[in-house]
Amino acid sequence: MPVGGRGCAVAVDGTPESERAVEWACANAELCGDELLLVHVDAEPMPNGTCPGWLTDLATRSQLHYGAPRVRVEVLTGRTVARLLEAAGRAPLLVLGSRGHRALHDAVLGSVALGVATRSPCPAVVVRGAADEVRRETVVAGVDGSADGDRALEFACEAAEALRCDVVAVQAAPDSAFIPGPFDHPDRAELVARAERALAEAVAGFAPRHPDVVLRRLTSSMDPISALAEAAAGARLLVVGRRGSGGLSEALLGSVSRGVLHRARCPVAVVPPDDGRSPGSG
C-alpha cells in the first residue's frame, strides 16, 4: 500500500467524475502517497505526442486546488481496460472515478470499472459518493474466513492506520440460510453463533499487528451485498477481497463485486489475491 512517500495512479478522462477521483486521491494523501500519476487512455495517438489541454489543466488544478505535492501525466493509446491494467502493474494503488464517458465510457460501474477493478494487479479504488457524504471515520472490510478476506482486512487495517480511522469487519450470515422448508434446517441461533465465532477467529490476529486501530466486528443477517453496503453507509472506505468463500462466496468476480460497486455509497477498494508481494510492497 502506498504509504510513506509512494504515489498512486489515477485514471482520468476529462469528466467531472474522474476529477473527483483526483480530488479524492489528494484528500487521502496519507493513503495514496505524495505523488499522483494521471493516466489517460485514448483510442488514437495524440498529434506529435502532445498532451490534451484538459489533462494539463487538471494536473495544474491537482496541485493548486487539491494540494497534490507532485503530479505526472501519462497518455496511453489503445484499449482502455488493457492499458489501465498495464498502468496498475506499475503502481501500488489505482484510483478510478465512478462514472465517465470518452475512454472511461460505461461509468466505471460497467465494463471498464469491473474489467479493471476485478483484474487489477494492485488494489483499485472506485470513488463512489461525494466527500460531504462521509459521516464516519471508519473503514469497513468484508470478511469471510478466506485468505482473500484476510488480505482485504489487512489492507483495511493499513488504510485505517494511514487515515486515522477505526475498522469494522463485516461477516454476512444471510437470512436465506433460514428459509423454512420441508427439510430440517440448522438452528438459526447456532448459525449466527457460528458466523460470529468465524468472524472473531478471522480478526483475532489483526489487533496485535495493528495496536493503534480500533477493530470492531459486525455479523449481519443480510446478504453480503446489502450487509456491506449498509455497514459502509457514510464510511470513509469499503474494502473487499477479489475472491472468497463463505459469506462472500461469489468473491468479487461475480455478483457480489458487481453489486457492491453499484450499491455502495462510498469509495470501494478491491484488493487482489496475494501475488507474493507483502501487503505494504509496491
Rank of each mutant, 00 (worst) to 15 (best):
D223E: 11
A207R: 15
D223H: 04
H210E: 05
R197I: 08
A200G: 10
R188Q: 14
R209T: 10
P208T: 09
R236E: 06
L238H: 02
G145D: 00
R217M: 11
G234H: 01
I225S: 13
E201W: 04
A232Y: 08
D175M: 11
E196F: 03
L248Y: 11
V214A: 11
D166K: 15
L199D: 00
A189E: 10
R194D: 10
G246H: 03
F183W: 15
R197W: 08
R164H: 12
D166G: 12
A233M: 10
V168N: 01
P224R: 03
V203W: 01
A229Y: 04
A195T: 02
E158T: 12
E230P: 07
A193V: 06
M222T: 13
D166F: 06
A198W: 08
A202F: 00
L228R: 05
A193Q: 07
D184L: 13
A204H: 07
I179G: 07
S249W: 10
D184A: 14
S221R: 12
G241T: 02
R217G: 09
C157Y: 10
V239W: 04
I179E: 10
L163N: 00
P224V: 05
A251G: 15
A227M: 03
L199Y: 04
G247C: 05
A147D: 09
R243A: 07
A156G: 00
A172T: 00
V240H: 00
E158I: 14
A229G: 10
L218H: 14
G234S: 01
A193L: 07
V170T: 02
G247L: 06
A159M: 07
P208Q: 05
